[in-house]
Write a protein that binds this DNA or RNA. Structure first.
Lengths: 322, 322
DNA sequence: CATATCTATCTCGAAACGAGATGGCAGACA
DNA sequence: TGTCTGCCATCTCGTTTCGAGATAGATATG
């Protein structure tokens, strides 16, 4: 059977994975410049590749203007197809590389800003050294949105807070006690303060839907006490800066100000009568439980937490081994 | 929401389309060397790329031995996934480029060696000039296997032969008359010869399952005549060479020896009492009928055939415009 | 008018690619 | 036993592709 014809090399394609990645990235970012930042590729490279894609197809895929880009009808079709192709490639790679003996791939974890301050560095180091083929993607945020996004399946894993004794199927990483965070050189100078006396200190605290805020508010209400909330700020670093600058006090857990406290930039005073505690827990997305990569990270995190607690890098209580 | 992590460039993949093509090609060919020939790529390039793929995945995909390659379990999975990915890419490109206004993509057509001799060149030229975005892949062969492969859906289109008046949904391109192909300087010297007199000439003809052979055999049997078949050869060029060298006569249609006849290398003598005719038809694969590219080629072929007939480059009769 | 933001183009060094040559290995054959 | 064949792996080198960085042009905004 003799083949005749003008066909070029058998099976050569117009598109390439790199070009699909770039194209999809540009569309999703809404501009070449933003996509360049996200994809960590020069804007000019993106511009060139997408233009080459358009020339190869012989159709315009993007409308460019001063505010960025949008897709044409053809571009919308390529976007859909491109996403599907890239997803299939990703699944293929995961299927072939992600084994129990050698877990690999990307694992996403949501983590509150407070816990991130003690956990993120050591966790990333541990994953890097013990699970070298896993790419851990850590998304830090306030707990309100984190809870929502975890419920929506955005992460494989999430570090969350719970005040109830029962935490269901989640793993308890640590128990923390809230404390008054005090500017350096300011009263009170005792090691502890009764809850009833907190009203004397002007507070900067997170917004109402925040776990920290709700946990403390509940206990205060139960004890018929009052708090002087002067500032509501949904930025942990802003709150800490205000305390460091003497503009306010706050009520946080030690993990949130571990570094600043150890450097003398703030002081912590234990709250008693009653002590206000909460659990730091690890949740796993049910649909990801079987993934070898997610399982491996899930097993690693408690170890990292224990190490931090035992070495006093994290002022918290390890969970009982019940 | 701040993203932390050790992820390399976002979305970099292990595999590339080129590597998938190479890997799938090697597995399907059963050896690097055969795949090199099919893919028109150096064997060393295939070897290198597949090895890089294995290193990137950290798994062995192929078992190599002296007779070629076979896949491991992981390789079988990648093969399956790879085929799916390549197919999806192909469909994507077709969807985006193959429009009625601008048909594009690959069209495959099977064509018998005889018809190929007058049709293939002009058809390729016409497609190249009138349908520049279509890659026509023409597969030449003897009619037996061609019928099988068309029935099996291997081609989008096929040029076939029919002796019956009714050709169903196929398009008649031309009607040809069989003639005796005579070595130069040999008898008979008349313009025509009765069927009953053919027994005097030693023949080289195709194998029994060949359309030419069957067409003539049927008529000969119907008229109670005999033929002196000395050689059965399933190679048209070999048959023609034997005639040119005076080793045998043959019974063919003019398209098969159009060039040699016009150059005086063979002569043709019309067979009469009766005249043996057949139709050259164009079949389309039902599943491809809607494809803009296949439709465009389907419409072009009759025009090319008509032009050849009218310009006497093809000694055949144009079909009636009924 | 100056500034900011975005895309397109150009240059150049680095990386990747593939052809061709060659070597090694194993089986078949005279 | 030596030779031949077929297959894969490695190397060299020239070519092609890629992307960073610089820069220019266009447009909207303060």
């Amino acid at each position: 059977m003799k083949t005749l014809g003008i066909a070029p090399r058998l099976g050569l394609f117009i598109v390439d994975i790199r070009q699909l990645r770039y194209f999809v990235g540009v569309v999703e970012a809404g501009s070449f410049t933003k996509a360049a930042s996200i994809l960590n590729v020069a804007q000019s490279a993106l511009s060139l590749h997408v233009r080459q894609l358009e020339e190869a197809f012989g159709i315009q895929l993007l409308v460019r203007d001063r505010t960025g880009v949008s897709v044409t009808a053809s571009g919308a079709r390529l976007l859909e197809r491109g996403r599907s192709i890239l997803r299939e490639i990703q699944l293929t790679e995961t299927e072939l590389t992600n084994t129990v003996a050698s877990p690999s791939g990307e694992v996403t974890i949501g983590i509150p800003s407070g816990a991130a301050r003690v956990l993120s560095g050591p966790l990333l180091e541990s994953v890097r050294s013990e699970l070298p083929r896993i790419s851990l993607k850590m998304i830090e945020g306030m707990t309100g949105p984190l809870e929502e996004w975890m419920a929506a399946g955005r992460f494989n894993l999430a570090v969350l807070y719970r005040t109830a004794e029962s935490v269901g199927r989640m793993t308890v990483l640590a128990r923390e006690e809230f404390c008054l965070v005090v500017p350096p050189g300011e009263p009170p100078f005792e090691d502890s303060i009764p809850l009833a006396d907190l009203y004397a200190f002007p507070l900067a605290v997170p917004m109402r839907n925040n776990n920290v805020r709700r946990s403390v508010a509940d206990v205060v209400a139960q004890h018929g006490c009052m708090l002087d909330v002067r500032f509501e700020v949904d930025s942990l670093s802003t709150i800490i800066n205000m305390v460091m600058e003497g503009k306010a006090y706050s009520i946080l857990t030690p993990s949130a100000i571990q570094k600043e406290a150890s450097q003398g930039q703030v002081r912590t005073v234990k709250i008693i009568d009653p002590v206000i505690t909460r659990s730091v827990v690890l949740a796993v997305n049910p649909k990801d439980e079987r993934s070898p990569a997610v399982s491996a990270v899930r097993k690693l995190i408690p170890k990292v937490a224990n190490t931090l607690i035992e070495s006093k890098h994290w002022s918290a209580t390890a969970p009982d081994r019940a």
